[in-house]
Amino acid sequence: MNGNEDFRDQNALAIKVRFLGDLPAVVGGRDTTVSLPQGSRVRDLVTSLCERYGDGFRHRVVSQSGALHHDILIFLNGENIDEIGELAARLEGNPDMEIIMLPAFEGG
């Protein structure tokens, strides 16, 4: 599944994405909108964003094994996706999504 802003299907999902933490510096902005077909999942959205923003974004969000990096937090309509199916969570309606790169918590 390949989502982008040119997706014209009237049934498409329009997903508002906000970036926090490290990510505004990586993508060059705080917000964007992504269109994806109905039935898409968070994984599809992440894939779409990786294609849009390239390796700089991909390497910060997704590990080489394809999992989210441990310091990436995704909220879908205010809910942490860890509690609603992780990357397989469904995108329904026209959801709001926040992708946050959390700061390392403490050092010494």
Binding site: F19, L20, G21, D22, L23, P24, A25, V26, R30, I100, M101, L102, P103, A104, F105, E106, G107, G108
Partner: peptide, 18 residues
Amino acid sequence: SAFGSPHLNNNASPTCGK
């Protein structure tokens, strides 16, 4: 983090915990 900065220095020392 909420502001959107990557420059969040969370440690005290140039060695400790590194």
